[in-house]
Amino acid sequence: MPLRRLDLLGIERALADWRSGHPRPLVDLSRLEHFDAYGLLMLVLEGSRCAESGGALRLLLPEDPQVRAGLERSGVLPLLDDRTWANAPLRGDGDVPLVAVVRTEAEEAVTDLVDKLSALLRARFPFGERSTHLLSLAMLELMQNVPQHANPKGAPFDPCGLCALQELEDHVHLVVADKGIGLLGSLRRNARYRRLDHASALEAVLVDGASRFERPGRGGALRRIRQLVLRDDGEFCVRTGRGAFYQREVEWTVGRVALYPGVQISVRLPRRLFQNSSRR
């Protein structure tokens, strides 16, 4: 089935299609109308999963020239596994990327990556200093979680940590994603949380501030980022394992979704915040 949306809202349908074709799913983007940073990073993660299983993604690229150009300028195509097949050459060049995508491989590299992405934000939104700082803070916290949590025992697989920043008409979108052991896997390293399931792990981490650390009060960065994002009228979404957490304004919900490895986090902040530092 051709996908019309490859984004936060449409990803569950896409994942169901990809699962049935694993490890050589046909990703039909020929009718694609809309994509976002979240959908793109899931595509890269899926490509990496397929390659690890001895397969490869098979891509039908968008027919709409504007959507196709957007995808090419996103910076995401060069991150797809080399074995990816596509019905046309995969071009990843572009002068002004809609999406800045980076791989987060080692903790030592995180600050440099954040510095580069922050410079991109500062150049784009010179009057949005406060919100740029908030996104920099979120990037620092979320990106370091990949080397610290996604594969803490150095198992022979690539957690494929990715970070994307996307500027849209009404909001700025930050996504940090990996396909590592997930929140539950990380939390279970702390004996207090061995009996949790995916959904309750999400609540424990995001609402109660639970962490892998034995000493009470350590960790809790995800909860803090969630609080800061909400304070600025943003949206916060985390998907991990079989659970998904979504919050907008004061209401939050935790739902059950199809199993997918790792942690994928979406932070959306209103664009107006980046245009005037004093507005909240």
Binding site: E107, T111, V114, L140, Q148
Partner: peptide, 10 residues
Amino acid sequence: YGARLGTRLE
């Protein structure tokens, strides 16, 4: 050490 400090390693 830098204007943005964020990792546990640092």
